[in-house]
Design a protein around this nucleic acid. Structure first.
Lengths: 93, 93
DNA sequence: GTAAATTTGTCAATAACCGTCAAGACAACT
DNA sequence: AGTTGTCTTGACGGTTATTGACAAATTTAC
């Protein structure tokens, strides 16, 4: 989800995996796994990527957060209700 | 949130912490921390508690899941949007 | 004040995560 | 077929986070 988006962005900007990885100062294999959802991005990495690829940071962070949520709720039966509860629990909404 | 609910249920049923802990076969101190949100419940523990306290298992699992989600999203700025994305990503909704 | 119940703190054990590397797969080209 | 470049896979330690177990401290009820 966020990984796929980042891969698209990276390819649009004609960056190779190893080039983006180098700019982020991480291992190429790591980034490969991250883009394919095998490992997860840290928030700081998303921010870094947004800068490097001139992308919308807010949008990426939103996708990143959605991904984290999805990892937790997938497979559970009470997802919808739980999401509703969380929405209502948020401050100043 | 889920902890508070369980504490209420436990007290309604006149169970002491140590009694419920004993039935669950966990440490009393652990359960104390769980009810106060200092540590988290496992799914199996919620199910066990629902049985012991004759409570609505679905409702408890929903609260439990909402809690897990909330732990992740609290403090983030893109929560609402992220929640929406997750909702739309769910199968057969 | 005492006893029971709960909370707090600590520490080792376990599990989850991350960085690094080496080898493998795959396609493009010669 | 062999070479090159890119990406993927798997394995191994190291680090960090979570948990279980216990003792001590605190609170509550009498």
């Amino acid at each position: 989800m966020i990984g796929q988006k980042i891969r698209e962005l990276r390819e649009e900007n004609d960056f190779l995996l190893r080039q983006l990885a180098a700019k982020m100062d991480i291992d190429t294999a790591q980034l490969s796994k991250m883009e394919r959802g095998e490992r997860s991005f840290k928030k700081e990495e998303i921010i870094m990527i947004a800068e490097i690829l001139n992308a919308n940071q807010e949008e990426l962070l939103t996708l990143w957060l959605a991904d984290k949520i999805y990892q937790i709720v997938k497979g559970e039966e009470q997802v919808i209700e739980a999401l509703k509860i969380v929405e209502h629990k948020l401050p100043k909404v």
